[in-house]
Simulated assay, not measured.
Amino acid sequence: MDENQDILVTRLGALAQQTRLSVFRSLMSAGPQGISAGKIARDLGVAPNTLSAHLNVLSRSGLVTQRRDGRSIIYSVVLSAVTEMVDGLVNDCCGGHPEACAPLSGVSSQACAG
């Protein structure tokens, strides 16, 4: 496996757990401004220590970043990493028949438009 595939597997693995996927989806909904760990815990009904472990996995995968805002830690999705992940999944789409993959073109930008 090359380095790009290793990164893709790590990112997909980080999302391959129900709570982490829910956290990721909450962060995607929050957009670039992000959301505090406390709000995520309340919204999803996840214990803070459990949430911390899940956020660490997502952060190590490169899909999530954090910043301090006063006493809060704000988490947000790294949109470039999400785009790379989606691109990595469809990179070799359709074995030389790009017309078959036309519905996938612009998936990332369409997701943010709606």
Score class of each variant (00 low, 15 high):
residue 100 A to M: 15
residue 49 N to F: 06
residue 93 C to R: 07
residue 56 N to L: 13
residue 64 V to N: 02
residue 92 D to A: 10
residue 58 L to R: 02
residue 48 P to M: 11
residue 51 L to N: 02
residue 53 A to I: 03
residue 13 G to V: 04
residue 81 A to H: 00
residue 5 Q to H: 09
residue 37 A to N: 04
residue 56 N to R: 14
residue 42 R to E: 12
residue 26 S to K: 07
residue 102 A to E: 12
residue 68 R to T: 06
residue 109 S to F: 13
residue 57 V to Q: 03
residue 2 D to W: 09
residue 66 Q to H: 07
residue 77 V to H: 00
residue 110 Q to K: 15
residue 57 V to S: 05
residue 48 P to C: 07
residue 47 A to V: 05
residue 71 R to L: 11
residue 83 T to N: 14
residue 22 S to T: 03
residue 31 G to A: 06
residue 5 Q to P: 00
residue 110 Q to H: 15
residue 31 G to L: 07
residue 109 S to Y: 09
residue 60 R to C: 06
residue 18 Q to L: 12
residue 100 A to P: 01
residue 21 L to P: 00
residue 44 L to C: 02
residue 23 V to I: 10
residue 50 T to N: 06
residue 97 H to N: 14
residue 86 V to I: 14
residue 111 A to Y: 09
residue 107 V to H: 12
residue 112 C to F: 15
residue 2 D to Y: 09
residue 64 V to R: 02
residue 64 V to A: 06
residue 12 L to C: 10
residue 69 D to A: 11
residue 70 G to M: 09
residue 61 S to I: 02
residue 103 P to D: 08
residue 31 G to D: 05
residue 80 S to C: 09
residue 40 I to G: 01
residue 76 S to G: 05
residue 45 G to E: 01
residue 30 A to H: 00
residue 77 V to G: 00
residue 22 S to D: 10
residue 28 M to E: 08
residue 61 S to A: 13
residue 3 E to Q: 12
residue 77 V to Y: 00
